[in-house]
């Protein structure tokens, strides 16, 4: 069995290639991590809209901290949680730029809640990609605001106790109540059909910005196989059977 087919025989044409908006840098995510799919979908959206040369990304603190190395576009590295504020500054300074943030649940939904809510409420014309994998991945698996009830993490060794740690924070539901945002949706990437839907949602969130519609947020329910201590391919089951109970998929707000 050949390990890698490096040569494409004559007669074959490409139908799926690596997005041009991605750099050559290898992702630093763990094996099987949904971040990789989501990062790629963002790059695909940038390619499809032809905006690579006017896009500025804002990288978070968290597992996507190296995001700026993965893209062939300008990037700002933000302090933990402040991505929406940084994006606001960039967008206000130069409205011609297409500005997106890419944040995890710790970054966006804990330390950066205020920045997120207020950027949304201002209807800031930016695109926010929110990866909700219910755990602090980069720091080693501590409880996140979105950690599921009973879920074991390094800081909830007996499972998340709702009486002392509260409930999974439903950011998208919260933001959908506001008048400011144009588009709030929750997606997943655990199978091809959902990847395609997530892809469309991300594309829409960027297109909204191009059309000046205002704040768009795509939450993606993901899994963290490493910290869940499950085989990568089992992340699918985790999302389907556990996470979606608390984070049902679908559009929460769409302003035409």
């Amino acid at each position: 069995m050949s390990v890698v087919e490096t040569k494409v025989p004559a007669g074959f044409v490409p139908v799926y290639t690596r997005p041009k908006a991605l750099s050559d840098k290898r992702f630093t995510y763990c094996p099987g991590c949904d971040h990789g799919i989501i990062t790629r979908l963002v790059a695909e959206a940038i390619d499809e809209l032809g905006i690579q040369e006017r896009t500025v990304g804002v990288a978070p603190v968290g597992c996507a901290v190296f995001l700026y190395e993965f893209f062939r576009c300008d990037f700002a590295q933000a302090a933990h949680g402040r991505a929406c504020a940084v994006a606001t500054g960039i967008k206000r300074a130069n409205p011609e730029l297409i500005v997106f943030t890419y944040q995890g649940d710790g970054d966006l939904a804990a330390i950066g809640t205020a920045e997120t809510v207020h950027a949304a409420n201002r209807g800031e014309n930016i695109t926010v990609i929110f990866v909700n994998n219910q755990i602090y991945g980069m720091t080693g698996g501590q409880m996140a605001p979105t950690t599921l009830p009973g879920m074991r993490t390094t800081t909830t060794p007996e499972g998340r106790d709702l009486r002392s740690t509260g409930y999974p924070l439903k950011i998208s539901e919260m933001l959908a109540q506001l008048d400011g945002p144009a588009y709030i949706t929750r997606q997943a990437v655990f199978d091809v059909r959902h990847v395609q839907m997530a892809r469309k949602a991300i594309l829409r969130a960027f297109r909204n910005q191009l059309e000046g519609k205002g704040f768009s947020l795509v939450e993606i329910v993901a899994s963290c196989p490493t910290n869940l201590r499950i085989p990568p391919a089992e992340g699918v089951r985790w999302v389907k059977e556990q996470a979606l109970k608390y984070f049902p998929l679908g559009d929460l707000k769409v302003r035409e």
């Binding site: 490409p14 799926y16 690596r18 991605l22 992702f27 995510y29 971040h35 799919i37 091809v192 990847v195």
Partner: peptide
Amino acid sequence: QMCPDAAIEV
């Protein structure tokens, strides 16, 4: 489409 490392071309 499912590859988390953008490692596959088809």
